[in-house]
Write a protein that binds this DNA or RNA. Structure first.
Lengths: 132, 132
DNA sequence: CGGAATCCTGCCTGATACTG
DNA sequence: CAGTATCAGGCAGGATTCCG
């Protein structure tokens, strides 16, 4: 997602001295897929093709703008396909591509981790936060 | 990361009608770990304990503010430990906890995916973008 | 060195209106 | 239905400065 205008400049500025992670293209891709909405959209589509409004409903909390933007980016990156069916109200369906499914499988691991270790994290927070 | 003030309200507002992903605590945790800096910090610490400046150098492009903020949050969530050694310039070391390492193993999959499929994504972008 | 505090830019959200 | 467009406001995030 486009949240890297000023940071990009810094990356380029530092790249002369440190090309470890900063200049690596895989770092840029990792930046992109480590995005909240990207993760959730990919997760949502694991159940098969879905329409715009379906995704919107499942990810309650996303604005139309960000959902559209995220879907466009993922389409551009070849992770999902956008199919327009010229019915009377037009129908638009989003579906993971082969590439998208390979990412979804990895992301499923993240989802499982979150569900599995949620209680541990909540416990850690409770002991970290000041007790009243 | 704290990027959910107004959105939280929408989540709560919609939760009455749809409690699928929105109200699930694992969704909130998934939101948090689907963060660019979180991913990169966890990845960086896979090689063992590191000092603040070491992490900062490896993640060229992160501001001190965001790095501090991210490290604090991860410490609060019990994913890493912060150790202060009272040397003359103070030395602060960050290290993954057991819980943090379990997340790191999953995230390693993301890193591998990014490195493996980077070319496919770049090719998809090239064919999506308008040809000159 | 490792932050904390400050200011400031600009993205994201939220609301609304308008196409096809 | 599935957007696109626009505008206000808030808050994330960057740059800079200062402190233990």
């Amino acid at each position: 997602m486009p949240t890297m205008t000023a940071a990009q400049k810094r990356v380029h500025a530092k790249a002369e001295f440190d090309a470890y992670l900063a200049a690596c293209p895989s770092r840029l891709l990792l930046d992109r897929i480590s995005d909240k909405w990207v993760t959730l959209v990919i997760c949502s589509l694991e159940d098969g093709p879905q329409r715009f409004s379906e995704v919107s409903r499942r990810l309650a909390g996303v604005s139309q703008k960000m959902l559209t933007q995220t879907l466009r980016t993922l389409e551009r990156d070849g992770l999902l396909t956008r199919t327009v069916t010229p019915t009377v109200p037009v129908t638009v369906t989003y579906e993971l591509t082969e590439l998208g499914r390979s990412l979804q499988e990895v992301m499923a691991g993240l989802k499982v981790w979150a569900e599995t270790h949620m209680e541990s994290v909540l416990a850690a927070r409770a002991s970290y936060d000041p007790q009243p």
